[in-house]
């Protein structure tokens, strides 16, 4: 630890209030990719020190080539560190036995295309040395959980990208892992799938599991992660709790409903009187995700053509009505009710 270059890391460590069990620990982790002749091609990772604690959702962020995937591969033992160490459950990352408690969803679902969903899950179940009965039960649960009942007997080659992703997720969960590593979990998923994935990740955390994910989908990371590490060019640039990192300290936000124009200007007046500066007083816009999910949900409830909002309509009104119904589901309620029971197990 003597060459700990990351000041941020040491700073962030006290941020966790109580001492908790550490699931993943990297110590001064570096990786240099070399060519065939041993010449250095690229330094993918420089002295990374992070600790992932039990029960948190930890996000690895960074642009392409920043070292996110390298970190995940080092943690999984798919790559060997050039220097430094990775400990997973206090075991060296190259040990096979740690995998008993790990679930891994790769960047793209690298599955055997000639197997059906059921065969795939059964195969991975066997790799955990699960008995026939356990496998059947678990496969059944997972197929329901990821919503592939209708396609369970089809070969994966016929699957859409989103469906393959779901099978990939199911295989990562086959052993009911304590640590789940997700490499770009939401790529290729439609907004509903993305929402479901996020709900599932939160659900797993609620079951006391640890989740490590890496993604470029910043909105998703913001939605689910407790803590994030931001990597750039192989170096750790930022590490901390999402709520702390994103909080804008000197701006105050007030949400209110049913205010008249008169009231708004009075409020602005009050702010000015107290020496504050009004940046904007405006109707909030909902996210595209909320709008989309709302429309789909409405369509499921009432099939048929939907009356399109015309220029005369107030788009903000429909969005605002969408927002309250979507908001709670982002945090604790799964998007579709039928998944509720499965996810809770």
């Amino acid at each position: 630890m003597e060459t700990n270059t990351s000041a941020v890391a040491t700073e962030a460590a006290p941020a966790s209030p109580v001492e908790r069990e550490v699931v993943i620990e990297t110590r001064n982790l570096s990786k240099i990719y070399r060519d065939f002749w041993g010449r250095k091609k690229v330094q993918a990772l420089k002295s990374l020190d992070i600790e992932v604690q039990k029960g948190e959702i930890f996000g690895l962020l960074g642009p392409n080539g920043s070292g996110k995937s390298t970190t995940i591969k080092l943690i999984l033992g798919l790559l060997f560190p050039t220097s430094g160490r990775v400990l997973v459950f206090d075991k060296d990352a190259t040990e096979t036995r740690k995998n008993e408690r790990i679930g891994y969803l790769p960047e793209e679902s690298y599955l055997y295309k000639f197997l059906t969903a059921e065969e795939t899950l059964d195969f991975y179940g066997r790799l955990f040395d699960m008995s026939g009965e356990d496998r059947r039960r678990r496969v059944e649960e997972l197929i329901k959980l990821v919503g592939l009942e209708h396609a369970r007997h089809r070969q994966l080659r016929e699957y859409s990208k989103g469906m393959t992703r779901r099978v990939g997720l199911a295989q990562a969960l086959i052993n009911d892992p304590d640590l789940i590593m997700l490499d770009e979990p939401t790529t290729g998923l439609d907004p509903i799938g993305t929402r479901e994935m996020k709900d599932l990740i939160l659900n797993l955390r609620d079951q006391g599991k640890t989740v490590l994910l890496c993604s470029h989908q910043l909105a998703d990371v913001q939605d689910v992660c407790d803590r994030v590490a931001i990597l750039h060019q192989g170096e750790l640039k930022e590490l901390g709790r999402v709520s702390d990192l994103l909080k804008v300290q000197d701006v105050t936000e007030v949400h209110a409903r049913g205010l008249s124009e008169q009231a708004k200007s009075e409020i602005a007046e009050v702010i000015r009187r107290h020496g504050g500066e009004v940046e904007s007083i405006d109707n909030p816009t909902a996210t595209m995700e909320d709008l989309f999910l709302n429309i789909v949900r409405e369509s499921e409830a009432r099939p048929g053509a939907r009356r399109l909002s015309t220029a005369g309509d107030d788009p903000a009104a429909s969005a605002a009505s969408a927002a309250p119904s979507a908001e709670p589901s982002a945090s604790d309620q799964p998007a579709s009710p039928k998944r509720d029971g499965d996810a809770a197990e």
Binding site: G77, T96, N99, Y104, E108, L127, F128, D129, G168
Partner: peptide, 10 residues
């Protein structure tokens, strides 16, 4: 990379 999903199992 199908081997990735295999060697990350025990």
């Amino acid at each position: 990379k199908t081997l990735y999903t295999i060697v990350t199992k025990p």
